[in-house]
Design a protein around this nucleic acid. Structure first.
Length: 608
DNA sequence: AATGACTGCCC
DNA sequence: ATTCTGC
DNA sequence: GCAGAATGGGCAGTCATT
C-alpha cells in the first residue's frame, strides 16, 4: 500500500469529530487491507498501526526512538525548503501545526520545483514500507554527526512526498497524528474490519492489556482471527497495562466506591511492575518501559524475599534516606533514573519498594489467576509471599467507612509528605485488577478541593506561547510571575496551560492584546523562556498546584533577603483557576510569601 | 572539556 | 501528571 | 463516562557548538 493512500484516510478522518464516523473511515482502511492482499505488503497492517500511533514500535519495544521532535524538525524544514527559521516559526504560529507548516512549505511550487530539479529527483511512489524502513533507519542512527545523517534521510523522503504526505510524515515523526484516532479506535477498527463485530473490541482489549503491542495484536487477528486473539496469555517478562485511578472530590468517594473502602498512602515515587521468574527479575515502568537496569537493589530484594516460582507484582519505589527512616521527594528519586553510575546511586539514594498489588502467581507448580480475584484476596496472597524488610514493604492499608475517617486518613498521609491517599474498592466480585483501566475501583484523593488544602497563588501573566492544534490562534500556555519586593520586578514562576476553558482562552487573547510588549518588559525577570509574546504586567490570575519545587528554570525567589541564589521556585502540576479581576497586579503573591509557602510544606521527617 | 539545546520519560 | 470537550 | 488532545516541572542522556 502506498503512503499517499494511507494519508488520504487520515485526511478524511480529520474532517469529522464524530466518533462513529471516525471509526467508520478508519475501519475501512483495515478492510481495504483485508480485501486487497495483492495491493498490500506483508506487514502493512502492523506498520499502519504503529504509524497511526505516531511511533515505529509498541511501547514495550526496546527499539530506539527517532530522537527528533518539533524543534529539530523545524530546523529540517527551514533547511530543506530554504527559508529562514523565522518563516517557519511564523507559519507554525499561524497554523499551530508542524504538519500543516511542512505542507505549506512543500506546496510552495516554486521552491519545490527548484529543489527537486536541482537534485534531479523524479516523483515516485513511496510505499508504507519505504517510509517505515527509512524512519527505522533514522531511529538507529546515533553518534557524532548523526543529525546530519538523519537529515539526509529525511530530505530523501521529503523530496519524494506530496504536501499531504509531508504533513502526516512530520506528524508521525513528531509522535502524534492528531486526527482523533488512538488505541481505543484502533481496537474498534480491528474488531469491525477483521472480526465483523465491534463488540469484539472487549476481547481485543483483553489481549492488548496483557500484551501491550497493538501491531502484534493486529497482525495476530489478521492472520489467525479470534483464535489468535484467544491464544494471547500473560507471560512473565511481558508487562501488563497498569490499572489506573480516577479522581473525585472527597465528598463523593465513598458513595462512588460502594460505601466503604480500603485506603493506602499514595507514595511519591515511581510505579514499578515486577516480573519474577525464579532468580530473574524484570522491572517495568508505568509506560511499560523495561527499566530493570535502573534498580538492581530492587531486583535483588525481590529475588530473595518473594516466595513464589513466578510472580507479577506492583509497587512504588520510593527514595529513602540512608538510614531508611524517611521517604525523600520524587525529585530525589529521579536522579536514580540513570544509565551510568547506578551502583554509586544505589548506595547514595537507597530505595524502598512498597508493594501494593499482585497480578500473577505461580507457586509450587500451581497457577493462580489472581488478576480476577478481589483486591483483598490479592492482598492476602501478596502478604503471604512477601518477607518484609527495610527495603521491601507491603503498603499499609486502612479500612474506611465514613468520610470523616477518609479525611482523617488523608490528613495523616499529607502530614507524612505523601501525595494523598488511594482508596480501593473492597467489592468481593468487582474489585479485580482491571488492567489498562482508569475506573472507579481505585479513586485517588490528592487534595480536599472544597477544604482548600491546596496552595493557591495569585500570579501575573508576563508572556505566552501560541497554542497548537485545537488551541491554534490562541495562547496555548502562559508564563506567569510573582512579585519580588526587593527588586520590584515580576519574576517568572511557571508556565500554566491547563485549567483554561476555550472561553477562558478567547477572553485572555482579547484581554491581553493591549498589553503586548515588543520585548521583555524591564520590570519582568525571565532568563530561561523565550515566549512568542511578552506582556506588560496587567492582570492577576489564580493558580493552584500540588507543591512548590526548587527550580533551575524559574526566576522567582532567586533574589531574597539580599542574597542571590542559583535556583528559584516553581510549581508542580500548575492549574489555572480563575481571573482575579478584583485584584491589582501589586496584589499578586510576593516572593517572600512563596518562600514561606515552601517552608510550610510538610517536612520530610517522620514519614513512615 | 564545558555548555546548552533538545528529547524522552518519570511524575 | 491535569484538564477540557465532543460524542 | 469515554476517548482524545491540549498542556505542566524536572531529571538524565545525547549531540552540536563553543
Amino acid at each position: 500500500m502506498d503512503f499517499e493512500t494511507l494519508v488520504t484516510y487520515y485526511e478524511r478522518i480529520s474532517s469529522t469529530k464524530k466518533r462513529l464516523e471516525i471509526l467508520d473511515i478508519f475501519s475501512q482502511l483495515f478492510s481495504y487491507i483485508r480485501d486487497n492482499p495483492d495491493k498490500t505488503d506483508e506487514g502493512d497492517l502492523e506498520k499502519i498501526i504503529y504509524l497511526t500511533q505516531g511511533t515505529l514500535y509498541a511501547e514495550i519495544s526496546e527499539q530506539p526512538k527517532l530522537g527528533l521532535a518539533e524543534k529539530t524538525l523545524k530546523d529540517l524544514l527551514s533547511s530543506y525548503y530554504a527559508v529562514n527559521s523565522s518563516t517557519v516559526d511564523s507559519i507554525m504560529k499561524k497554523t499551530g501545526d508542524l504538519g500543516e507548516t511542512a505542507a505549506k512549505l512543500a506546496g510552495s511550487k516554486k521552491k519545490q520545483g527548484q529543489i527537486t530539479a536541482f537534485m534531479g529527483i523524479q516523483k515516485e511512489t513511496l510505499y508504507i514500507k519505504d517510509i517505515y524502513d527509512r524512519l527505522t533507519e533514522i531511529a538507529n542512527i546515533s553518534g557524532t554527526k548523526s543529525l546530519d545523517k538523519k537529515f539526509d534521510k529525511l530530505r530523501w523522503l521529503l523530496a519524494r512526498s506530496s504536501p499531504l504526505s509531508v504533513k502526516y510524515l512530520m506528524r508521525i515523526i513528531n509522535s502524534s497524528l492528531r486526527v482523533g484516532v488512538s488505541d481505543a479506535t484502533i481496537m474498534d477498527g480491528l474488531a469491525v474490519a477483521f472480526l465483523d463485530d465491534k463488540n469484539y473490541r472487549t476481547l481485543i482489549e483483553k489481549a492488548y492489556n496483557i500484551y501491550p503491542d497493538l501491531g502484534y495484536i493486529g497482525k495476530k487477528i489478521h492472520k489467525e482471527g479470534l483464535n489468535g486473539l484467544k491464544s494471547v496469555q500473560i507471560q512473565i517478562g511481558v508487562p501488563i497495562r497498569m490499572m489506573l485511578a480516577s479522581r473525585l472530590d472527597y465528598t463523593q468517594i465513598l458513595d462512588k466506591i460502594g460505601g466503604e473502602c480500603v485506603s493506602e498512602y499514595k507514595l511519591d515515587g515511581e510505579r514499578l511492575q515486577i516480573h519474577k521468574s525464579g532468580e530473574n527479575v524484570g522491572l517495568f515502568s508505568r509506560r511499560l518501559k523495561n527499566i530493570s537496569e535502573q534498580y538492581p537493589d530492587v531486583q535483588y530484594v525481590i529475588a530473595n524475599n518473594i516466595s513464589a516460582d513466578k510472580v507479577i507484582l506492583e509497587g512504588e519505589a520510593v527514595a529513602m534516606d540512608v538510614m531508611f527512616e524517611t521517604m525523600l521527594p520524587f525529585q530525589v528519586l529521579t536522579t536514580r533514573r540513570r544509565k551510568y553510575d547506578i551502583q554509586e546511586f544505589v548506595k547514595k539514594i537507597p530505595v524502598c519498594l512498597f508493594l501494593f498489588d499482585l497480578l500473577y502467581l505461580e507457586k509450587n507448580g500451581e497457577k493462580i489467576p489472581v488478576m480476577n480475584k478481589s483486591m483483598l484476596e490479592r492482598r492476602k496472597y501478596l502478604e503471604e509471599i512477601t518477607t518484609e524488610s527495610k527495603e521491601l514493604r507491603v503498603v499499609m492499608q486502612k479500612p474506611i467507612h465514613t468520610t470523616d475517617e477518609l479525611v482523617e486518613f488523608f490528613n495523616e498521609a499529607r502530614a507524612k509528605n505523601c501525595e494523598g491517599i488511594m482508596n480501593k474498592s473492597v467489592d468481593p466480585i468487582e474489585s479485580i485488577y482491571k488492567a489498562g483501566n482508569r475506573g472507579f475501583l481505585w479513586i485517588k484523593l490528592k487534595s480536599l478541593e472544597a477544604g482548600k488544602m491546596k496552595d493557591s497563588i495569585d500570579v501575573v501573566p508576563i508572556g505566552a506561547y501560541m497554542g497548537k492544534g485545537k488551541r491554534s490562534n490562541r495562547y496555548g500556555a502562559f508564563l506567569v510571575a510573582v512579585f519580588n519586593e526587593e527588586n520590584e520586578k515580576y519574576e517568572f514562576l511557571t508556565r500554566v496551560a491547563t485549567g483554561f476553558s476555550d472561553d477562558d482562552l478567547e477572553e485572555f487573547w482579547n484581554m491581553l492584546q493591549p498589553t503586548l510588549s515588543e520585548s521583555r518588559p524591564t520590570n519582568v525577570v525571565c532568563n530561561t523562556e523565550k515566549p512568542d509574546v511578552w506582556f506588560n504586567p496587567s492582570a492577576v490570575i489564580e493558580i493552584v498546584g500540588d507543591e512548590l519545587t526548587i527550580s533551575n528554570k524559574a526566576d522567582a525567589g532567586k533574589f531574597y533577603n539580599g542574597q542571590v541564589r542559583e535556583k528559584g521556585y516553581s510549581v508542580r502540576f500548575p492549574v489555572f483557576q480563575r481571573l482575579r479581576s478584583d485584584k491589582n497586579i501589586i496584589d499578586c503573591t510576593k516572593v517572600d510569601e512563596l518562600v514561606d509557602f515552601y517552608q510550610l510544606q510538610p517536612s520530610s521527617e517522620d514519614l513512615i
